[in-house]
Write a protein that binds this DNA or RNA. Structure first.
Lengths: 108, 108
DNA sequence: ATGTTAATTAACATTATTGTTAAATTAAAG
DNA sequence: CTTTAATTTAACAATAATGTTAATTAACAT
């Protein structure tokens, strides 16, 4: 599986996406803090973090008995780069769509 | 599940990601043409296309007995927008990383 | 009408994913 | 050295995802 597709797979679960959003907004957090993204057990969160880590979306830092997680900037950038590599396609398409809608407006 | 998370889930399967890449590169294609992304049966492709369509990643156009698929520009843009909304985070992080690496280089 | 082409839906088996509780690990604190 | 705290791993059940072949649908061509 392509590296990017694994990244998408990791973010394609609602709980994991919420974890990543929380980490992006609040920065590095211990595993325990992440339970607040939903009513979910600690082992479940732990495994979601493992999936995210394996996909290279988050990284772990150890501080005593806590495991601090943070988002790997490369992962978020890679997603942006992929989308941007097709920018010409979607920009043109959306521009055309907007023009067509404006035409409709003027008719009424 | 957030709309974006469903998009990621749709792209998180290697076959579906390959389908989307092919459609992005070659433009609108009939379902049959997409079998070439791997050795896979027609029904399997058909169901992957259904998942992609439900997630809003592709759209279908009917031409006689063929079903022509194409990527919805909004979907690719939405992914880019998400990444870009965190650009300050990853740009800064990566700049810091690069500087640290340059420092290391000079030491040697 | 009959056959051909393109694609989808149905039915089923297999494998993966997700969640839970209980047990184990790791490090700090008393 | 025993207890507490934070997290992970193990074991298991339930559900979802994926692929296959067979059957069905839809449109065209003869």
């Amino acid at each position: 599986m392509s590296n990017l597709s694994s990244t998408f797979a990791a973010l394609g679960d609602a709980t994991r996406f919420a974890i990543v959003e929380k980490l992006l907004q609040e920065g590095e957090l211990p595993a325990g803090e992440l339970r607040s993204v939903g009513q979910i057990s600690a082992p479940a969160i732990s495994r979601h973090l493992k999936v995210l880590r394996k996909a290279g979306v988050v990284e772990q830092r150890i501080d005593a008995q806590r495991r601090l997680y943070s988002v790997r900037p490369e992962a978020v950038q890679a997603i942006g780069s992929w989308s941007m590599s097709y920018r010409e396609f979607w920009q043109k398409s959306l521009d055309r769509l907007e023009m067509a809608l404006n035409q409709e407006m003027r008719k009424k």
